[in-house]
Design a binder for these strands. Sequence first.
DNA 1: TCGATATTGATAATCATTATCATTTTAACG
DNA 2: CGTTAAAATGATAATGATTATCAATATCGA
Lengths: 145, 145
Amino acid sequence: MSTPKEHEKLSDYISSQKLKQSHKRLTVLKAISASPKRHLTAHEVLALLNKKRSGIGQATVYRSLRLLCDAGVLNELRCEDGSSRYEFASAGSHHDHLICTKCGRFVEVFDPEIERLQDKLFARHGFYPERHKLELYGVCRMCKR
Amino acid sequence: MSTPKEHEKLSDYISSQKLKQSHKRLTVLKAISASPKRHLTAHEVLALLNKKRSGIGQATVYRSLRLLCDAGVLNELRCEDGSSRYEFASAGSHHDHLICTKCGRFVEVFDPEIERLQDKLFARHGFYPERHKLELYGVCRMCKR
DNA sequence: TCGATATTGATAATCATTATCATTTTAACG
DNA sequence: CGTTAAAATGATAATGATTATCAATATCGA
Ligand SMILES: [Mn+2]
Ligand SMILES: [Mn+2]
Ligand SMILES: [Zn+2]
Ligand SMILES: [Zn+2]
């Protein structure tokens, strides 16, 4: 899924920052691409890699996730339990999330009207807008038994 | 600010749960009430108490904050940095927040139209709604130089 | 006042993440 | 191709907010 484009974005960032290409960093990116889950924790990424006996340590996973965010390949979502989840930044650009409190399912949503009303709130209070976080918690269809 | 009412709410909860009244727990509540800051971290509450030589330990602060939330006196806001902030639950009931990324100012906002559109998103995706979190990050008027 | 039970404080433990630092890779250059 | 400076890596220690433990203390109904 959107693999070559993401690799290129990573490559470009590495060049622009005078860093060095590394095989393990690419392996992390590929593991995330190959997973059906689209919102992964560092721990889950590490588990994917261990299953493949990649020999990649957790420090490298954390460092790679950070760098992939800096490169604009991934987005970090800070969860309420203190951990973070990572998703591809490209996929549909900005969106918010419906989150099932039973099974943890993430559903991506976007409502241009809500976005517009948010901008009005910023303006009404004299704020220069930078970003927002909208998370809707509830029980999904599957989990409602 | 809204002190007697909050004390009563705490008292009622303590009775209903067959707990015991404690002087130190009340001191924590009073310190929060007396502070001009309306969205405090546990660390900030502890600092307020230490300034008064209350002899209240941090474990008790954490336990009191938890209990005050259970009693419906306080709301916990989980921040992106991994810490929590506490505000009075009564004050205007539900609202969302504009947060200044420079000075940390919290501005309370409420937009019934946004709330309505959120409910429609829940419904459209077959979710049973439980709660939501909307945080608008930007630079406040004071901080825009 | 007594005794059962809740509260407290000091401190250890937890959990996700970051920092350290010695060792290994990378890649530019000769 | 080797050499080499700089980046990447892994093992592990450290961090920071919060929670758990447990012995000592406070509360409160009988
Ligand atoms: Mn998403
Ligand atoms: Mn508030
Ligand atoms: Zn579900
Ligand atoms: Zn500000």
